[in-house]
């Protein structure tokens, strides 16, 4: 499995690097082709990969926190509330602080959902989903309202709702990479604790895991990952949900496998979907990447659901 993932990641990267709106012969590049490759394509492919990794990892962490396989940045409403924060920053003309606003929005949204959904220290899955959906809807409505107030079509606001990697720069890549490193390293020592967190809280804490502290840490790490992803690439749904699911169905259930695999799987998936988004149309035209993630991801996920209902059933 490890080998398959590494191969998928490498393959996705090479494919994403070598194809695009402009044909580039990697072996003998002209000046212009070199510029395209290093100024445009490479930063973009990296951003796609990093955002995919961040979203998949945050999805896994959300699933541990919420003890629910349906949790991810999308269903918990964190994406939408992050986007709301980001749009607020745009409205106030505070573009440089945008990631901060996205983070604040994301954490506020997550906290709200968590508080609503937890009862006596247990997260109620249905309540969580409902609260997440309500929050998403509310945040989207607020964004639409702000859009309406500012003008009919404010490009940067629309961008948050659609998602995409066009605005990739090496600096963003670097920052997101750092964020992923920090989050990943902060939970890397907790693999065994994460596995124990899959038991009920009583069992987990009597086994010697400080459930509350661990959960808060995961919470923050997941919100951090989501907020920066949203800050740089807008709302991209589904990745945090399907990547961990697919990996679990591939029998990677222990945290020590699941977490690194999510990073690799998310990155490979996102690079591949972005590749499709930017090459499927003629003449250098592009599709919003969310269209691809949702359609491909959705269909594949449906296939898994039907094909392997039994395993999913045993999840809960």
């Amino acid at each position: 499995m490890r080998f398959i993932l590494a191969a998928a990641l490498a393959l996705a990267f090479i494919a994403a690097i070598s194809a695009g709106a402009v044909k580039i012969d990697l072996l003998s590049m002209s000046e212009m082709e070199r510029n395209i490759l290093f100024d445009v394509r490479l930063p973009r492919v990296l951003l796609a990969g990093l955002v995919g990794a961040a979203l998949a990892l945050s999805g896994v962490l959300f699933q541990y926190v919420m003890k629910n396989p349906l949790a991810d940045s999308f269903t918990t409403g964190v994406s939408a509330s992050s986007a709301m924060g980001a749009v607020t920053a745009i409205m106030l003309g505070l573009m440089p602080y945008l990631p901060l606003f996205a983070l604040a929005g994301g954490i506020a949204g997550l906290y709200l959902v968590y508080r609503i959904a937890s009862y006596r220290g247990r997260i109620q899955p249905i309540t969580m989903l409902l609260a997440g959906i309500v929050l998403s809807t509310f945040a989207s409505a607020t964004i639409s309202f702000m859009k309406f107030l500012s003008d009919d079509a404010v490009s940067s606001i629309i961008f948050w709702l659609m998602g995409g990697f066009q605005a990739a720069t090496p600096l963003k890549d670097l920052i997101l990479f750092a964020v992923i490193c920090v989050s990943f390293l902060s939970v890397r020592g907790d693999y065994l604790r994460l596995d124990i967190l899959c038991f009920d809280d009583t069992t987990a804490s009597s086994t010697g895991v400080d459930v509350n502290r661990l959960r808060k840490k995961l919470f923050f790490a997941a919100a951090l990952l989501t907020s920066f992803s949203v800050g740089y690439a807008g709302i991209i749904g589904f990745v945090g949900l399907i990547i961990p699911h697919i990996l679990r169905l591939g029998n990677l259930v222990k945290a020590s496998y699941l977490l690194p695999a999510s990073l690799a799987g998310g990155a490979a998936f996102m690079m591949a979907t972005d590749l499709i988004a930017r090459t499927i149309l003629q003449g250098g035209q592009e599709l919003p990447v969310g269209v691809i993630t949702s359609s491909i991801g959705g269909v594949f996920f449906l296939y898994l659901l039907i094909k392997r209902r039994k395993e999913l059933f045993y999840f809960n």
Binding site: K67, N68, P69, L192, R193, D195, I196, C198, F199, D200, T202, T203, S206, T207, G208, V209, R248, V253, K254, E311, Y314, F315, N316
Partner: peptide, 23 residues
């Protein structure tokens, strides 16, 4: 401590469940 009702949220095999007691 063995609580009255225990729940597991992840498809672990029985061996791993017992192993987590060694945490």
């Amino acid at each position: 401590f063995l609580p009255q009702e225990a729940a597991l949220n992840m498809p672990f095999d029985a061996f791993y469940v017992v192993l987590t007691g060694r945490f």
